[in-house]
């Protein structure tokens, strides 16, 4: 083997080591496998899905699971399996983007509040209290209703409501770390406040937020499905698990498969992210295994 190949192998091994997959715990492996599985399904949906998820085919409506339609068909004759596969695209995107924005906003604001202290801290924390005073879903619904139903409004509403958890989490950590020894050492090297905050304090308190974000994905996917179910999120005929459950509820006694399989899909994705959260917490040493 050439030296180049050797060093490349080393680099690969290091990459896996950095990701924590070198000698990862079972939760982390299983969670990652489930999420990667869903991601692959989402990316390759057009090739995997046996039927078109949108086109009506009234001749085949309300068929139970069979070899032709493994998960049955709905009241418009659409294949449930295909719709669940396409739904993974929307729900995964919802989970990722719906957490990314609150994560970025909350982490930044929380870090600034904790580090600056004084009136900046007081102001941000009072805003946070106001947001927290409303029930999560009610506030989301109100914001979406004001904007206009749809996925974009859903993301905006989540960013406005969801940042508070991250802000509180990060602020508490920054308060502890800003008087820590290595921050004193960084100050003794003449670094400015922003460099110290974003290069030294934040990387040391981000682990908790990452773990929290994984369990937050579960909540966001459920919230997205609930809001779509209420008709304020993803609009029919788009295939989304929450929408599918809403559409199938009238037939629950006669055609149970329309609601059950999208429901199971939600559960399985949530399960994957929960395992990932647990595995990461163990990996980062935030929790004893």
């Amino acid at each position: 083997m050439s030296v180049e190949a050797l060093s490349r192998g080393n680099w690969l091994a290091r990459g896996f080591g950095a990701l924590g997959l070198g000698r990862a715990n079972l939760n982390l492996r299983l969670g990652a496998a489930i999420i990667v599985g869903w991601a692959l399904i989402a990316v390759f949906a057009p090739w995997i899905a046996p039927y078109d998820p949108i086109t009506h085919n009234l001749a085949d409506k309300l068929q139970g699971p069979s070899l032709l339609h493994p998960l049955g068909t709905d009241n418009f004759g659409r294949d449930i399996l295909s719709r669940v596969i396409y739904g993974a695209r929307i729900d995964l995107q919802m989970g990722v983007l719906g957490v990314l924005f609150p994560f970025l906003i909350g982490t930044t604001l929380g870090a600034i509040a904790g580090y600056a202290g004084g009136w900046v801290d007081i102001l941000l924390m009072r805003i946070l209290d106001v947001v927290l005073a409303f029930p999560f879903l009610v506030l989301m619904l109100a914001i979406i209703a004001i904007l206009q139903p749809g996925l974009t409004s859903f993301y905006i509403a989540l960013a406005l409501v969801g940042w508070v958890s991250y802000a509180r989490l990060v602020r508490a950590q920054v308060l502890v770390l800003k008087t820590s020894d290595f921050v004193t050492a960084a100050r003794s090297l003449g670094f400015g406040r922003f460099r110290i905050l974003f290069r030294h304090i934040l990387p040391n308190c981000i682990a908790g937020s990452i773990v929290f974000s994984m369990s937050d994905v579960v909540l966001v996917v459920l919230a997205g499905s609930s809001i779509s179910y209420l008709g304020l999120g993803v609009q029919p005929p788009t295939a989304e698990w929450g929408v599918m459950i809403a559409e199938g509820q009238n037939f629950i006694t006669t055609a149970w498969w329309i609601t059950t399989f999208p429901g199971l899909a939600i559960v399985l994705m949530a399960f994957g992210f929960s395992l990932l959260a647990d595995g990461l917490a163990e990996r980062f040493g935030l929790r004893q295994p």
Partner: peptide, 14 residues
């Protein structure tokens, strides 16, 4: 400047 406790005065994640 160097300090008493080198373990806590170095950034642990850098």
């Amino acid at each position: 400047m160097i300090f008493q406790n080198p373990s806590s005065h170095l950034d642990p994640v850098m």
